[in-house]
Amino acid sequence: MSNFNEISSKYEKDSVIQKSASEILFDLLNIQPGDNVLDLGCGTGHISKLIRAKTDGQVVGVDPSEGMIEKANEHYSGQNILFHTHLAEQLDYKDEFEIIFCNSAFQWFIDTKKVLKACNIALRQNGKMAIQAPATNNYCPNFIQAIEEVKRHESTKDTFSCFTSPWLFLNTSDEYSALFEEAGLSVEKSSIDKVTTSHSAEEAYKIFESGASAGYLNQTYYNIQVTREYIESFRNIIKKSFEDQAKETGQVDLTFYRIYLLAVKK
């Protein structure tokens, strides 16, 4: 069974896509020395560490996964970063941060309206929040193709039919903007970009395991018991799909559609 507690030990090494996408957030937010920054959905803290290098202000990382926070504290203790375990919906800060940095986490929020209201309260006047997250129902055509094979395969189709997606995928940037505007934040940039990178089939599988498997193989999102046999078959089908998607060069052109949004508290 996969969830973020279980994948935390390999997340920092395998989260290639999340790391590269975060670079755009740094450009959007332009963190200044002295800024207080909240890393919302900080995972194992590798982005929090980069934030720490850009500011002498307070850096706080929050994540709902105890395993992720445990690894964050293990890796970055002594670097003056505060890590806390709790849901984004439970944020209780007020007028504390100039910056909220949210990288590859927005799709996981259970109640986005509640989260954004809490973020508005947590930001200081003229504070900024930026998100990067997979977007649209076709968020990664390669993943979708692999999952379609899981849906059809005799060994997995019945169990997978009992899966309910935990993710929020909106199909237009305007829909994302509307959520932020409703929370009282002014959207300055909002676009869904297509990003394609090349990887070996093995690397593509590791990228899948670094995030998507925490949903697709999580008992929480099935209404029947998930067996070890199902998990093994599921993973074998996904691996085989990436191998089949590879070109003659052995590389998979991995495509993601991602929302990049910058909002300001006016």
Rank of each mutant, 00 (worst) to 15 (best):
K114N: 05
A146C: 04
K128D: 02
K113Y: 00
T112R: 10
S155T: 12
T136P: 01
V187C: 06
D174I: 11
F83P: 00
T196H: 15
S104I: 09
N142F: 07
L185I: 03
L170V: 12
F160A: 04
E154S: 12
A201C: 11
Y93I: 08
E209D: 04
S173P: 00
A178N: 05
E202V: 11
K151P: 01
L82Y: 05
S190K: 14
A201V: 10
A183Q: 02
E209G: 04
P141E: 03
L170S: 14
D95E: 13
D95G: 12
Q145T: 02
A122Q: 08
F160Q: 03
V187P: 07
S198C: 14
A201N: 04
A201K: 11
I121N: 14
E148T: 00
C102G: 06
M129H: 05
K206I: 01
H199C: 09
F109N: 01
S161E: 09
L116G: 00
Y93H: 11
E96R: 11
V115L: 03
I121W: 07
N142A: 07
E96Y: 14
D111G: 11
K117T: 07
L91W: 05
L123F: 09
H84D: 06
D174Y: 06
T196I: 15
T136W: 01
D158V: 07
S173K: 13
V115K: 10
V195Y: 15
I144Q: 08
E154L: 05
V115C: 07
P141T: 02
D174Q: 08
D158Y: 14
T136A: 00
N171F: 13
E175G: 09
R124P: 07
A88N: 01
K117S: 03
K128H: 08
E154F: 10
T197Q: 15
H86V: 00
T164R: 13
T172P: 12
N120A: 04
D158F: 10
K189T: 10
T159D: 00
G211F: 02
I147E: 03
F169Y: 15
V115Q: 06
D95F: 14
H86S: 07
I100G: 05
E96A: 14
W108I: 08
I99C: 13
S173M: 08
L82P: 01
D95I: 10
E148P: 00
T172R: 11
F106G: 06
S161L: 10
L170N: 14
I131P: 00
E154M: 07
E96Q: 13
E175D: 06
L185G: 03
H153E: 13
T112K: 12
G127R: 14
D193H: 15
